[in-house]
């Protein structure tokens, strides 16, 4: 995996799937907004993969960075300027800086402390956004952002075709970047840190700075995902910080397989499609079915629930322990 040189098959498959995805909003215009949202949460799941799959940090508050990106991009569009790409950059930058600052909290301490701190962080931001309602709109959500045309030419249409293409393009580029990084010598040291931090330090890898890097990188991409959701839907609500959102993304990543660059994306697609189907039947009790699914995965093991047919995916998800 780390030393493989021949990747043409993988490129072909990924290229084909993305070509289909890019075609969807134009072939099925009624589904364009769904595509935009799915691409955004797929990016969110990819960002969690860096934190959980590549750094081994169990987080129950990854929504913190998603939410910060969403509010930063939303406020930027509303108060400063409407250009989407600049707003995206702002969302990424703010989330990355916060991730870097917060990496201090997750470098030390046990899994329990990390779960608690990440959760507390997202709740803290929820409180902040709720109380400063003069700026954020509070419980009513942030409204009234008008997005400018993409690249100065393509207006965001209400049907969602341009937003969907935009979100897919950002997801595609992020995927390339992550893939690039995790397969580099730096990425190899990340795997080493995840597998065995004690040994990683004993071969000269600076464990703390690697964890901080993975965490901040994950935060930056989560910020990008949040910014995309804000820009493509034109709305940010307090829900972006909720524990449900953190749990959703955890489930997506686990469905697709953590520690594998495509895991988050595949999981997000599966999750969103499933959500559409189940929510169509019993809209209120989606939480129950999601809970049952999480419980089953935890109880029976990820391999048995998600891939009973074969272990075709090479890096075992068991690596994340």
């Amino acid at each position: 995996m780390l030393l493989a040189t021949d990747r043409w098959r993988e490129r072909l498959i990924v290229g084909f799937l993305f070509a289909v995805a890019f075609g969807l909003p134009w072939l099925m215009p009624s589904r364009a907004l769904f595509v935009a949202e799915t691409a955004s949460v797929a990016l969110f799941a990819l960002s969690l993969d860096l934190v959980l799959g590549y750094a081994g940090i169990v987080s129950l508050g990854h929504a913190a960075f998603f939410g910060v990106g969403a509010y930063a991009a939303g406020l930027f569009a509303k108060l400063v300027m409407p250009d989407p790409l600049t707003g995206l950059a702002v969302g990424i930058a703010v989330a990355a800086l916060m991730g870097l600052a917060c990496s201090l909290t997750i470098l030390r301490g046990s899994d329990l402390t990390r779960i608690m701190v990440t959760l507390a962080l997202s709740l803290l931001l929820y409180e902040l956004a709720n109380r400063f309602d003069a700026i954020t709109g509070g419980a009513d959500g942030l409204q009234g952002m008008a997005m400018g045309p993409l690249l100065g030419r393509f207006e965001f249409d209400l049907q969602g075709q341009v937003p969907a293409t935009y979100a897919l393009a950002v997801l595609f580029l992020a995927l390339l970047l992550v893939q690039w990084v995790v397969r580099s010598p730096l990425g190899a040291t990340l795997l080493a840190v995840r597998d065995n931090p004690l040994r990683a330090a004993a071969v000269g890898i600076p464990v703390a700075s690697r964890l901080a890097f993975a965490y901040a990188f994950g935060a930056a991409l989560a910020g990008a995902a949040g910014a995309l959701v804000a820009q493509t839907s034109g709305f940010v609500s307090l829900e972006v910080f909720s524990i449900e959102r953190s749990a959703d993304v955890l489930l997506m990543l686990v469905i697709g397989g953590a520690g594998w660059v495509y895991g988050g994306v595949l999981g997000a697609v599966a999750f969103k499609v499933l959500n559409e189907l189940v929510a169509g039947i019993t809209p209120q009790y989606w939480t129950f079915w999601m809970g049952l699914f999480l419980l089953a995965i935890g109880l029976l093991g990820r391999e048995r629930v998600l891939r009973p047919w074969a272990l075709w995916q090479r890096p075992s998800t068991k690596a994340v322990r």
Partner: peptide, 27 residues
Amino acid sequence: PMYQRSHLDQVLFSIGLVFMSVAATDW
């Protein structure tokens, strides 16, 4: 059966239980 499992599995399992209890109580 969950004691020997990874913390990630324990988190998935128990947060799943939370969501189920919330939805079931609501219902």
